[in-house]
């Protein structure tokens, strides 16, 4: 039997990880909802932004918060770059080709990172304390990441509901054709969406880099779980993705402590497969 303290600790860690995963899932989901393309290489953009944080802090001596802000900028630029260079030429192609084009990008980014920076694991060394509450240890870095992620999601919500361009983005997600008829420029909406999605990847990168070390295969480690959260929540459904993030992160965290890290992921993926059969439109929709 596992000590309940360990389980409580795992549950709290799962909750904290869920915040950052939700940020990633919302970024990917925003892009999917608006542009209708799954960026398979989304978490590889996170990986690039994590390298940016690492080099800015460890080589150029920037403070971490400034490097984090820079990472958001890097992410937004990467998002725009991916959209302009890869997505816009294939907007009209078969969905399979769109999926594969961003898959090719994944391969390219992964190997290019290996080529430039080798497969070494690099981490930003920060001396952040570990909090102890009633025998449960909580990493301060994770707590900060969680709080910032939640604040960022509130910011995204306000952006989408209170600004003109945000409203336009939601309108395109609802009806692509009608939006063009109303006189809004879909190209501009796509570009802004890609930039916002990229910026969220950049912020996630900053939050992940204070907890994990970065390596070229970081995207492969966090990518599959991110898509699955999006699909589990219902592609394009923001609230669903938010809820699904916490379900998945708790399974991974508690499963990891109870059996092994791999088994935690196996259970999460298996749940995803079963849920696809039972609730294909996402956990929050009713079956037709």
């Amino acid at each position: 039997m596992i000590d309940p303290i360990f389980l409580a600790e795992a549950a709290i860690n799962g909750l904290l990880l869920g915040g950052v995963l939700a940020l990633l899932a919302l970024g990917l989901n925003l892009i999917f909802g608006v542009i209708d393309i799954v960026w398979i290489a989304y978490v590889d953009l996170v990986m690039l932004a994590m390298y940016a944080v690492y080099f800015l802090v460890m080589v150029y001596g920037w403070p971490i918060w400034l490097a984090g802000l820079a990472a958001i900028g890097v992410g937004a630029l990467l998002g725009i770059g991916v959209h302009v260079l890869i997505i816009s030429p294939i907007l009209g192609s078969a969905p399979v080709n769109q999926l594969l084009a961003t898959g090719g990008l994944l391969f390219f980014l992964q190997s290019f990172a290996t080529f430039l920076w080798t497969t070494d694991h690099r981490s930003v060394r920060l001396a952040l304390p570990v909090l102890e509450v009633a025998g449960i240890f909580v990493s301060f870095a994770r707590l900060i990441a969680f709080v910032i992620a939640i604040l960022a999601m509130i910011g995204l919500y306000l952006f989408l509901t209170r600004t003109y361009i945000g409203t336009a983005i939601r309108a395109v997600a609802q009806d692509r054709e009608a939006m063009a008829l109303m006189g809004a420029d879909p190209r501009r909406v796509y570009l802004v969406t890609s930039a916002v999605g990229g910026a969220m990847a950049g912020l996630a990168a900053a939050l992940l880099s204070i907890q994990y070390s970065v390596h070229p295969y970081f995207g492969a480690a966090f990518g599959p779980i991110t898509f699955m959260i999006c699909v589990l929540g219902g592609l394009g459904n923001m609230v669903g993705a938010f809820v699904a993030s916490f379900i998945m992160s708790e399974i991974i965290s508690i499963g990891g402590v109870t059996w092994s890290t791999e088994m935690g992921y196996v259970i999460a993926f298996a749940l995803f497969i079963v849920m696809m059969f039972v609730r294909p439109g996402g956990i929050l929709t009713k079956r037709e």
Partner: peptide, 22 residues
């Protein structure tokens, strides 16, 4: 010497192919 170079070119070709020669 250049680990990853081969795959980098390979990945780039893939993207170009899917865009221009589907």
């Amino acid at each position: 010497k250049f680990i990853g170079m081969a795959e980098t070119i390979y990945g780039l070709l893939l993207v170009l192919f899917i865009i221009f020669l589907p």
